[in-house]
Computed example of a mutant assay.
Amino acid sequence: MPSTTPQDLQIKPRQPEFSLPSPWARHWHGDNAFKSHFFDAMSLLFPDGERFFIDSVRAYRDQVTDPQQQAQIRGFIGQEAHHSREHEHYSDALRASGYDLDYLERRLKQRLAFVRKHLPPKVHLAATVAVEHLTAIMADAILQNPAWLTGADPQMARLWRWHALEESEHKAVAFDLYQQVCGDVWLRRRAMLQSTFFFSLDTFKGLVHMLRRDGQLWRWRTWSDGLAWLWGSRGILRPLVKVYCDFYRADFHPWQHDNLQLIHSTRREFDQPAEVS
């Protein structure tokens, strides 16, 4: 299947200055524990996960001869490296607030170590392709729908919007590489099923741990409001079901969900200082 990635798409790492709330606000998202920790729990997966993504792409980059694709791979690696670094700082703030991130990260580290040691590189890349789709559809929703971050601390909202922008920009880099070096549809589908399970499990585990530490785990209102925010009639995750399922089509490509205009409009928020000089 030919790539539908825009040929002139420039993928470049940005290094915007982020100042996390100081002192750290445990409930930085509208003073709401559930919303804050939903994002926190996802964030703590990124430092190790994105280093894994970088390695899975690097394993095959020497098979790419097209200069434009090589440039996009360099951009992907640079962006993911910066994401990993910023979310390390985010994790440091969570750890300093009393959350046991060593406990939360242990299983993920063990799982990634097993995959690296026992499974072939094409499986690593398939897993990367799957998780990149999960992050891409959530990133698109963050950029399209301000309700995802309504009431959030402005500094935290900016960090998540930056991450969302770059996930949207490079959403097909690993996919195009996978199609070139493997392209196995069934492996891709299996990787998505496994990635969805573990991503959901790890996020839920982090959410539960942080709510427990905050004394809110057994509050009915915390869960009823939180689950309505995620899956209610106007829940933020409900509109993502269809675009998630598109991944399982044999002819799927990430740029069939074309949000290039949204990317261009969001770039102005982060690229404007460079353009003024």
Rank of each mutant, 00 (worst) to 15 (best):
Q155G: 06
Q155F: 02
M156E: 06
M156Q: 11
M156T: 10
A157L: 03
A157D: 08
R158A: 07
R158S: 08
W160H: 05
W162F: 14
A164S: 15
E167N: 09
S168T: 11
S168C: 13
E169T: 05
H170G: 02
K171F: 08
A172K: 04
A174S: 13
F175M: 03
F175W: 12
D176M: 11
D176Q: 11
Y178G: 04
Y178C: 11
Y178P: 06
Q179A: 09
Q179L: 10
Q180R: 12
V181K: 04
C182A: 14
C182Y: 08
G183W: 07
G183V: 10
D184K: 09
V185F: 10
V185C: 11
W186S: 14
L187G: 09
L187W: 10
R188F: 07
R189K: 15
R189M: 13
A191L: 06
A191P: 03
M192A: 05
L193F: 15
L193I: 14
Q194M: 13
S195Y: 03
T196Q: 11
T196I: 15
F197M: 11
F198T: 10
F198I: 09
S200G: 15
S200T: 15
S200D: 07
L201E: 15
L201T: 13
L201C: 10
L201P: 00
D202Q: 13
D202S: 12
D202V: 01
T203N: 13
T203E: 10
T203C: 12
K205C: 05
K205G: 02
G206F: 00
L207G: 03
L207K: 07
L207M: 12
V208A: 15
V208G: 06
H209N: 09
H209F: 02
H209K: 07
H209P: 03
R212I: 09
R212T: 12
R212N: 14
R212A: 15
R213M: 15
R213Q: 15
Q216M: 12
L217G: 04
W218R: 10
R221Q: 15
T222K: 11
G226T: 01
A228E: 06
L230A: 05
L230P: 01
G232P: 02
S233D: 12
R234G: 02
G235K: 01
G235A: 04
I236H: 02
L237A: 02
R238V: 12
R238G: 02
R238E: 05
P239D: 05
P239A: 09
P239N: 06
V241I: 14
V241D: 07
K242P: 04
V243A: 07
V243H: 04
Y244V: 00
C245M: 13
D246N: 09
F247N: 00
